[in-house]
Every structure is written in structure tokens, then in C-alpha cells.
Amino acid sequence: MSTGHTPPTAIHVEELTRRYGDLVAVDQVSFTVPGGQMTGFVGGNGAGKTTTMRMIMGVLGIHGGRVRWGDREITTTDRRGTGYMPEERGLYPKQKVREQLIYLAQLKGMSASEAKGEVTEYLERLGLAERMDDTVESLSLGNQQRVQITAALVDQPSALILDEPFSGLDPAAVDSMADLLREHTARGVPVLFSSHQLDLVDRLCDRLVILAGGQVRAEGTPDELRQGTALRYRVVGVSDVGWVRDVLPDGGGGGRVLDVDGSTAVVELAGDPGADQQVLDRLVSEASRRGGLRELAPIITPLSEIYREATA
């Protein structure tokens, strides 16, 4: 294994802008990819994710703004040490898997023998030991994907910029891939990956950047993003829970009842910690008076909802 590249404390994207003719594809986009963390990059088609990533990697010209590597401007050398996986899938279709991974690693500056050792190790870990000498085109799409990710991971990259790395992978493969990425974040490497699969992003990433129409709509940890959203609780009683309307009457303070269906109700609290606690206590005492309480639990707002709100 090579000694690896030194990761930056963070990659700062500052007011990056890219135009295609009159269209502003990326409009003053700023966000941070901290070292040692997985940052999910979400947004619909045409939101500007790929364009932003290509600008970070220097394969597309920057029309405005800059990319900082720690506390200085990013350099070609920094980019050479960065593992990059572009949007489109495909290496050289007719070349053998291991051979072309070694070639790509050599282009990054590794020696042939170093590259061979590291590539072989990765392929074995990804369950591709027996396919190393097959051509890329003979592999299934999922396996091609693994090879593609391996190309980004060799040579102990100092940062990882991955465009849709999980698309086309089955759940088990997603998990093993995520484990691999975590090894790199454990070294302090900043990882930026884009994805359409929000549940997966929710599960894997430490931070989130939501992009829409070429602009950043939200950025932060999932918890931070949820803070702005309403606090909801599910109340399940032994019998009918229509009484929650007495605890939280319409127009009364402290919150509101969103839904009552037999023994289950959903309530939304005001978001004031002191008042919220009082409401919860009243719900518990009222329930025990009216036959008993089965469940009183906060509803975690799904990321998809945060995303819909952010991009609305």
C-alpha cells in the first residue's frame, strides 16, 4: 500500500458559477466538504451536481468563484491526488479489468508494482478476484460499477469526488461500498458523492448539500436540516384517541392535531422546548386516564420531505 496523499482539512466550494450560453447551470454555489466526512450531494436532474463536480475536478472551466483546498487555492497536484468518478459509466470496454486499473493508477504516478498490489487487493475485497483478467464489457453493470469505484479509490486519494457512485448497486454492494468509503473518511479524507437515492444518502452521509436550479438550497448535517422542520409525535392509545383534540384544541397554543385514526393520532408541537414538554406530559397523563398509552414517539422527518421543502 502506498503511503497515500495528505487529505486537506476541507474542500471549500466558493461561489462557483458556470454558464452554458445564456443558461446559468451553476449559480454562485458555495458549500464545504469537511475532511473525514461523507457529504451527500442531492438534487434533481439538471440541478448542477455534475457540472459542479466537474469544475471541482478541473475538467470543466470555472466561470466564477473558486475551489479552496484547506486554506489555499486548489492545484493540479491536489486534483491528481483526488479520486474522481465521472457521471458516465465505462472504462475501456475491451481492456482487462486489472490491467486498466493499473494503467489508470500509473497515470496518477504510482509505479506498476505498487499499483498492481493495491488494485489486486481492492478487486479481491470487492469479490472480483476471479474476474480480474476479464474484459470490462464482459462484467455485469454492478461489477463494472465496482471497478469504476476502484479506479477512484486506488493510490490512497486525498479526496474523493464521486458522481452517482451507488447507482445500479444492490443493497449488499451499497453497504460494502459504504464501508470502503468509511475507511477513507477515517483517514480524514473529504468525500463528496451525488445521489438520487435520498434514503441512501440519509443513511450514509454525515452532511448534506441540496442543490436545485443551480443553487444551494440547504446545507448541513441531517439533524441540522431537520431542526427547521416541525416536531411531530405519534400517539397510540389502547382505545380511541379522539381525546387528543381536547389536549390540543384547534386554535389553542402548544401545537395542533394533524390526524386521528382510531387509536392512532399524529400531533405537531410548537417547537418551544418548555411548552412541548408540558404538552407531552399532558398527553401521557390523559392517556393513562383514558385506558392507557401504547406509544408516544417522535416522527423523524424523512429526508425526502426535507428535500421537497428545500427545493419547493
Binding site: 475538467v59 491528481r80 468518478m85 465521472p86 459509466r89 465505462g90 489508470l104 497515470l107 496518477k108
Partner: peptide
């Protein structure tokens, strides 16, 4: 077409 040019362009 396969965008391997991008991977290579990011390296050399």
C-alpha cells in the same frame, strides 16, 4: 464518450 477522458484528464 465513456468519460474515461475525464478520469485521465483529472490525472494528467
Amino acid at each position: 464518450q465513456s468519460r474515461i477522458a475525464e478520469i485521465i484528464a483529472a490525472s494528467i
